[in-house]
Design a protein around this nucleic acid. Structure first.
Lengths: 171, 171
DNA sequence: TGCAGCATGTAATTTGTTACATGATTAA
DNA sequence: TTAATCATGTAACAAATTACATGCTGCA
């Protein structure tokens, strides 16, 4: 992210909550240790800006070595892409759940999808014309997935409306 | 998975490589420790079946307590659903990469999607009529996402064909 | 002759999450 | 007066990956 300009850990967190959030999560517990590790390795420089009341603002800037390191990392021809979904795991067992609970889970998922869609709209509202094509591609990818999920859930939730079968020892 | 019938760790791994694989990954290093933990807690029982040459086959069966525990776990109204994609992270920086490399990454991703689609077809070829609706829903979900990704990549890869801009200190 | 499949696990390492700790400013 | 935003971090814990360790059978 620092290739786009210097930033503090706090700033980076905001990127993880908006544009990057849909495909990569990171909290302060990952970000701050990462920045100090990168600093030790010489991949970023840190400028401390004193502030009153708050801790010093630490603004990090990528170095030439950091840029070279990134370029090397980007050479991986097969970067991973993994979904981890407790939502789908839950749906596998819909037949063991009260139907009301299944509906709630689906409705909550649809709401989260809607929140993502609003986020995408907000980002685009802020103007994307000066962004690199890659960013537009990634944003569009997120939107396409969100739309596909929404459509799929709405059109197939009837599959989950089976009778509840008690599968106990007495079967 | 054991709600569907007894199985060994080795069997479970196969499920993680096929039907469950597209939304939840697990290797032996997770499965075997998990089974022995569940066994200690009384959520599964283990039957050892001696074999020649190979280690004993250990077949695990869910207990009534295990079933109750699962039911409790399924009560979460907001199960998570997270993507972690180094593929998308890479594409964010496409403008820093040689165009050939970008093309390779996209082609490799399309190939992996194709492999998933073949997997889905194989699973459905084996007959799905006796499956619970939840399983059909989850399989269909995976197919819908795969199709959406394929379409999106094919229709938008042109966004990644920008000129390579050298952004160094002299930039 | 070698590889894939069957079958189990442990140990070390790496990675990620959560809770804790501090504290001023500003808008509702 | 309450919550959100700004702003940093550490420590403990939980989870996941990878490498290691073993060894037979059957197919090409």
């Amino acid at each position: 992210m620092l290739t786009d300009g210097p930033a503090s850990g706090y700033d980076l967190k905001k990127h993880f909550e908006s544009s990057f959030g849909h495909f990569f999560a990171a909290g302060y517990g990952s970000i701050y240790p990462a920045l100090s590790a990168l600093s030790k390795q010489g991949f970023v420089n840190c400028e401390k800006i004193p502030q009153d009341g708050k801790p010093d603002r630490k603004v990090y800037e990528i170095t030439e070595e950091g840029r070279q390191f990134l370029l090397k990392a980007l050479e991986n021809p097969n970067p991973c892409h993994k979904l981890r979904s407790e939502f789908l795991a839950t749906m596998c067992f819909a037949h063991l759940m009260p139907r009301k609970d299944v509906e709630t889970v689906l409705d909550n998922r649809l709401e989260e999808i809607k929140r993502y869609q609003e986020m995408f709209r907000d980002i685009e509202g802020g103007g994307t014309s000066d962004w690199p094509g890659g960013m537009k591609f990634v944003l569009g990818f997120g939107e396409a997935l969100a739309a596909a999920m929404e459509t799929y859930i709405n059109e197939n939730r009837h599959l989950l409306a089976e009778k509840v079968v008690a599968k106990t020892a007495t079967g």
